[in-house]
């Protein structure tokens, strides 16, 4: 007799009180719903200020303001986050979340702060803030989103950008975000996975280890509309 072992997929949003200024909470919701509708058992958990790092297969890091961003970095460096990422946990980091994964960041003023040091990237304060729609070519697929940040991020040798910027600035005007092992990072803040259902599914497939059946939803209409709107401008 073969006993089926059902895995529960756990998705953890980290420190939304500190990192979560722009509706980033949507990413956890989108992943959980898209996995659940394909028959997976999903737990969506949140690590708030004062909580221990939960055990999870997917961690989500959002955008944030300057002071809270530094506190989030302090709290994550204390716990087992680094070890869990090295152990293969998947991470989606946007905006400030992207910055704190790196070696260093300075966002406001010229003080430089040490990052979590998980990926060899560095963020300096850019001369201007980037606010506006972002269109990125990720291996031939369009990623659409909105960026609002004052950072300029340079990638170390061996760190692959997520994609090439077609509109907006991303890291530096040429590339946006990065891919490193099981880490995905982008400057497209907020509910980037709601806007890009294919990216949500790619993340889920990498964790679940198998292809997912298609899921028809209004999110596809939204994605097509945003891609068309951004390409037409």
């Amino acid at each position: 007799m073969v006993r089926e072992i059902r895995l529960v997929l756990t998705i953890a949003t980290l420190l939304p009180d500190l990192l979560g200024t722009y509706g980033d909470g949507g990413n956890g919701l989108v992943l959980a719903e898209r996995a659940r509708r394909r028959g997976n058992d999903v737990r969506l958990v949140t690590m708030e200020l004062g909580d221990e790092l939960p055990e999870a297969e997917i961690y989500l890091l959002g955008g944030g303001e300057d002071g809270p961003q530094r506190l989030a970095r302090d709290l994550l460096i204390e716990g087992s986050f680094h070890a869990r990422v090295e152990g293969g946990a998947t991470v989606l980091a946007v905006c400030a979340g992207l910055q704190i994964l790196g070696e260093s960041f300075s966002v406001e003023g010229d003080d430089e702060f040490e990052g979590l040091g998980i990926v060899d990237v560095r963020t300096k304060r850019a001369r201007t803030r980037s606010v506006g729609e972002l269109l990125v070519d990720v291996g031939g697929r369009a990623l659409v989103g909105f960026e609002n940040h004052g950072g300029e991020t340079s990638l170390g040798d061996g760190v692959t950008p997520l994609g090439r910027v077609r509109r907006g600035r991303g890291n530096d005007g040429n590339f946006d975000g990065f891919r490193s092992g099981s880490i995905w990072a982008t400057y497209a803040h907020g509910p980037v996975l709601a806007l890009n259902p294919w990216l949500a599914d790619e993340l889920l497939q990498s964790v679940l280890g198998h292809a997912l059946e298609p899921l028809v939803s209004v999110a596809d209409d939204l994605y097509n509309e945003r891609v068309a709107a951004l390409n037409s401008r």
């Binding site: 722009y22 509706g23 980033d24 909470g25 949507g26 729609e133 909105f146 907020g190 709601a194």
Partner: peptide, 9 residues
């Protein structure tokens, strides 16, 4: 505001 991300809040 040109970014409707807030709908998720």
């Amino acid at each position: 505001g040109r970014d409707p991300s807030w709908l998720y809040d």
